[in-house]
Amino acid sequence: MAKKKRMKDLTLWERIYLPEVAKGLSITLQNMFRPAFTMEYPEVKFMPQGSYRGRPVLVLEEHGGERCVACGLCSRVCPALAIEIQAGETDREKERYPEKFEINMLRCIFCGLCEEVCPEEAIVMSKDYELAFTKREDAIYGKDKLLVPVAELQDRIEFLRSFK
């Protein structure tokens, strides 16, 4: 890093300031002729990488059931208390499943702690960033909205495994 310059360290040329002004102006002028970085959103959409933390979703296995066993760790670790779970009993091999699994997207801060703590790799952060609602009630996502087939989440799952 460049050494910090104090007022007394400046040369006369720098202290006149006008040349420095000209330098600054030339930089912005050059910038004006560079192409824009802007992505024109609704027409062009940002496709995130696996490292992106979009809205948290539940993994839906190929056989049609959720991976989640409703252990409640994500709900416990969630710093914003966005997750509410009611467990229930099933006949499947893992006898516990979420009867109700709700994430309040108004509370969610996309920290990804739920994903990190999950012992079953059942809740992961998706690439979905389009989250607009017009009612508070709509912001509470139930299992119908949260379950996403495992095939769509491959990127993120691979990313997570590469960091384990």
Binding site: C71, S75, R76, A87
Partner: peptide
Amino acid sequence: ARFRARVWD
């Protein structure tokens, strides 16, 4: 009481 609630909840 099985599966009805976690103790910490």
